[in-house]
Design a protein around this nucleic acid. Structure first.
Lengths: 143, 143
DNA sequence: CGTAGTCAGTTCAGATATTGAACTGTACTC
DNA sequence: GAGTACAGTTCAATATCTGAACTGACTACG
C-alpha cells in the first residue's frame, strides 16, 4: 500500500485501510486478541498471504501489536493498540451503514446499558450531537 | 467489486467502498454536485478509468445519481443520494482518525456553531453518547 | 472557415495486486 | 512413527490498476 496523499486525512487513512480486508481484520480484533488461524477462520475467504501482508502493514502502522505466546514453535497473536481501537469508530460507521441494506447479525452495543449504538457526529466544544444535515466538510486547500 | 459477504454489514459495505478511491469520491460529493472533470481534479491522482468505474458502481448501488446538465454533448454531473450522504459518517470517522497522524487541512464542522465535530458512538435508546471503552461488537454468528 | 480548447469519458498495454492451492518447518498427540 | 495443528510462505494464474494516449461532440476565438 503506497502512500499517496499526505495532505488529506481521509486519503491518508485510506492508504492504510482502503482495501477489502484490512478493516475486517480490525473488526475482529476489536473483540480481543486473536491468532493467525482465528483471524483466518473469522474473516470469510481471506487468503493467508493477504492476511499476512495486512497484519504486517497494520503492525508497521502501529495499529496492531504482534505478541509471541510460544517461543519454540514461534507462535504469535495479534492485539489492537490504542490507535487501532480508535478505528472501531470507522468499523462502526461501516456497520451502521451496511445494516440498512443487509440484515444485521452484528451490532455495536454499549456495555453498560446493553443497547445498540450508532455512530454520529458530535461537537466536543458545545458538548452536543450534530445532525448530519448540519455538518459540512471544509478545508483550506481541502483535499 | 464482487459481492462476497452478505452476512456481515461491515463486509457488505466494504464490497462497495473497500478500495482506495471510492470514499474519496464520496468525500468530495459531500460538498455538493460535481462534474467528472471536477472530481478528477479534486481527487489527486485518480485515473479517469477508475473514476468512471467507481461512479458506475456508486450509481448502481444507489449512492450517487447521474444527472445530465447538457443534452447534446452529453454531459452529466454527480450528486449523492440520501443513502450516499449517510456515508459521510464513514468519511468523517476516517478523517478524525487520519487527523491524529497527518496534519489536517480538512475538517467536519457544525454549520450552526462553526466548531469542528468528531464522530462518536451514541445510544439512541438512552439518548447519550457512549465512550469507546464501553462499546463492544456483538453478534449471533457474528461476522 | 479553421484552429484550439473543453468535457466526459474510453481504450490499451504494461505494472501491480490478489487469488487459490500447495507447501514448509516446528512441535504436539496418539 | 504417523497424523495433526499452527503460522505462515511460495508460486503460477488471474484480476485489477495505472498512465498515457485517444474519441467524439461540441464551443470559443480570430
Amino acid at each position: 500500500m503506497i502512500q499517496r496523499s499526505v495532505r488529506c486525512p481521509v486519503a491518508a487513512t485510506l492508504d492504510l485501510v482502503g482495501d477489502r480486508w484490512t478493516l475486517l481484520v480490525v473488526r475482529d480484533l476489536l473483540r480481543g486478541r486473536l491468532r493467525f488461524s482465528e483471524l483466518r477462520a473469522s474473516i470469510e475467504g481471506i487468503p493467508p498471504a493477504i492476511l499476512s501482508h495486512r497484519l504486517k502493514a497494520l503492525e508497521a502502522a502501529g495499529v496492531v501489536v504482534r505478541r509471541a505466546y510460544s517461543e519454540h514453535p514461534p507462535r504469535s497473536e495479534y492485539v489492537l493498540t490504542a490507535k487501532g481501537h480508535r478505528l472501531g469508530v470507522v468499523v462502526g460507521a461501516l456497520a451502521n451503514w451496511g445494516e440498512q441494506f443487509a440484515e444485521s447479525d452484528l451490532a455495536l452495543v454499549d456495555n453498560q446499558c446493553g443497547h445498540g449504538v450508532n455512530v454520529i457526529y458530535h461537537c466536543p466544544t458545545c458538548e452536543r450531537t450534530a445532525p448530519r444535515s448540519r455538518v459540512r466538510i471544509v478545508g483550506a486547500n481541502a483535499r
